[in-house]
Amino acid sequence: MDALELLLNRRSIAKLSAPAPEGKALENIIRAGLRAPDHAGLTPWRFVISQGSGLNKLSDILVKAAVEDKSDDTVIEKVKNAPFRAPMVITVIAKVTEHEKVPAFEQHLSAGCAVQAMQMAAVAQGFQAFWRSGKWMFHPTVHKAFGLEGEDEIVGFLYLGTPGCTPMKVPERDLSKFVEYL
C-alpha cells in the first residue's frame, strides 16, 4: 500500500479477530515505533505486549484499578472485557528520562508518535489496529503494575488483529476549518 494512501485513509476498526501479527510482521510494527521522533536520542518508549494469557493479566490489572475506585459492576465488567476486543494489545509507555533540553511532555509526544507509526505499520501489512486510552491508563494501580516511575505515562493501548470488515470510508473534512496562515 502506498504510504500517502495509507495515511490519508487511516480508519480504526474497533473489533478485531485472530490472527494477530507475529514474527516479521510484529517485528516491523515494533521497529516502526522505534522510528518515532526522538530528540537527543533518549528512546523514551517501552512496549508491553499482551496476548493469550497476557490479555488475562491485563484484564486483571484493569479490574483491580476499577475495584479500588469502587466502580459499579457494569464498569468492572466492561473493564474486564476490554483487553479481549483484539487478540493482541500493546501497552505503549513513555519512559521519561530527565533531560535539560527534552521535557517530559516532548517524550510523551514521542511515544504517541510511536503508537501512530505502529498502527500504520500494522495496516500496511494487512492487519488492523486501534488506539485506546481512557482513565485507567492514568490510575496509580495500573502505573504500579507496569513499573512506571516519575513522569512515565502510558500513552495508549494499541489493539492489534485482523479486521473482520472493511473500514468505513474516511469522511471528507473542510481543510479551511483546521488550517490558518500567519
Results as ranks from 00 to 15, higher is better:
M1H: 15
M1C: 13
M1E: 15
M1T: 15
D2K: 14
D2Q: 14
A3V: 15
L4Y: 14
L4D: 13
L4M: 15
L4I: 15
L4K: 14
E5S: 15
E5P: 02
E5M: 10
E5R: 12
E5D: 15
L6K: 13
L6I: 12
L7E: 10
L7P: 05
L7D: 06
L7V: 13
L8A: 14
L8D: 12
L8S: 13
L8Y: 14
N9P: 06
N9T: 14
N9W: 05
R10F: 07
R10L: 09
R10W: 09
R10M: 09
R11E: 09
R11N: 11
R11Q: 14
S12C: 09
S12K: 07
S12D: 11
I13F: 07
I13R: 08
I13V: 14
I13M: 09
I13S: 04
I13W: 04
A14T: 09
A14R: 14
A14V: 06
A14I: 03
K15S: 11
K15V: 08
L16F: 01
L16H: 01
L16P: 00
S17Q: 06
S17W: 00
S17Y: 01
S17K: 05
S17G: 06
A18R: 01
A18H: 02
A18N: 02
A18D: 09
A18S: 11
A18P: 00
A18C: 00
P19F: 03
P19K: 01
P19G: 04
A20E: 07
A20P: 00
A20Q: 07
A20F: 03
P21Q: 02
P21G: 02
P21F: 02
P21D: 03
P21N: 01
P21Y: 00
P21R: 01
P21A: 01
E22Y: 04
E22W: 00
E22S: 13
G23D: 03
G23R: 03
G23Q: 02
G23M: 03
G23V: 03
G23S: 05
K24N: 09
K24A: 15
K24Y: 05
K24P: 10
A25V: 12
A25Q: 04
A25S: 08
A25K: 04
A25C: 00
L26F: 09
L26R: 05
L26H: 02
L26A: 07
L26I: 01
L26W: 08
L26C: 01
E27D: 11
E27A: 09
E27Q: 11
N28I: 00
N28E: 11
N28P: 00
I29F: 05
I29G: 03
I30H: 04
I30P: 04
I30F: 11
R31W: 10
R31K: 14
R31N: 13
R31F: 11
A32V: 08
A32P: 06
A32E: 09
A32I: 07
G33H: 05
G33T: 07
G33Y: 07
G33W: 07
G33R: 06
G33V: 06
